[in-house]
């Protein structure tokens, strides 16, 4: 069953066709990779999915409901969380607070006037946040300001933030970009574990083929805003069109 259904989506920026007739269907519980050269429109596609951009035409259905025209926070509350290409975290807050916020958002919804409760007294939520940070091995950094983390840690924190909302669909925009090999491998293991342990679908944009082929069950190749092929990793590896459009060119 497909959890995400993208149909005939077009998006123009002035004269540039960033997305041209994109059709994409992501199966529930799968890891689906979207690859393509720089400027192929991958991030633009994610922006459409999370409500940051509204496409010119087409439809996007998540779990049978249209996401188009909804605000980002509404789409998130439907169960879609996104990790950004450059980490978006709450820099001035502590690592723990960064994870507490999505925990509250999950429990209390888009707004609640909880001005007379105390964060420290919310036992269940505090435990939940700490368990999440234990999963990403950051328990020793609970009280550090998030801004002071290394780039790799910021990524892991952002992944932890998204996961603590227990989303049904997790969107990752180049989660290993700029990471050292060891960090990349840690991230692969983390994502594998997440996918096995949790009832979650992952859509991942990635340039690093090692990451893509270790994780993905399906791969969509995007070039100049249009999907070229969609297939299993094994078939993609040998696909002549893909080599020409992407692998040969970028690597």
């Amino acid at each position: 069953m497909s959890i995400l259904e993208v149909k005939n989506v077009n998006k123009r920026f002035g004269g540039l066709q960033a997305l041209g007739d994109v059709n994409l269907s992501v199966q529930e519980h799968s890891v689906h990779a979207i690859i393509g050269p720089n400027g192929a429109g991958k991030s633009t596609l994610l922006n459409v999915l999370v409500g940051k951009l509204i496409p010119d035409t087409g439809s996007v259905m998540f779990d049978g409901q249209s996401v188009l025209g909804r605000k980002p926070h509404e789409i998130n509350q439907m169960g879609i969380s996104r990790v950004f290409q450059t980490p978006e975290i709450f820099g001035d807050l502590t690592v723990k607070e960064n994870v507490l916020i999505p925990c509250f958002a999950k429990r209390d919804g888009a707004f609640r006037m909880h001005a007379f409760e105390t964060v420290a007294n919310e036992k269940a939520i505090n435990e939940q946040a700490e368990a999440m940070l234990e999963d990403v091995n950051m328990l020793d950094k609970l009280d550090m300001p998030a801004e002071s983390l290394s780039r790799g840690d910021k990524r892991r924190l952002e992944i932890a933030m998204c996961l603590s909302q227990q989303p049904r669909l997790l969107l990752l925009d180049e989660p290993t970009a700029g990471m050292a090999r060891a960090d990349t491998n840690n991230t692969i293991d983390l994502l594998k574990e997440i996918h096995e342990k949790r009832d979650i679908t992952i859509a991942i944009i990635e340039h690093d083929m090692h990451v893509v082929f270790s994780l993905a069950q399906r791969i969509t190749v995007l070039a100049q805003g249009t999907p070229l092929v969609e297939d299993t990793p094994d078939n993609i590896k040998g696909h002549p069109k893909v080599r020409e459009a992407y692998l040969g060119e970028a690597h």
């Binding site: 980002p72 998130n76 978006e88 709450f90």
Partner: peptide, 13 residues
Amino acid sequence: KTNQTRLNYTGLN
């Protein structure tokens, strides 16, 4: 104050 964008994409209005 630190990141309104992140808050929106964390499901908060």
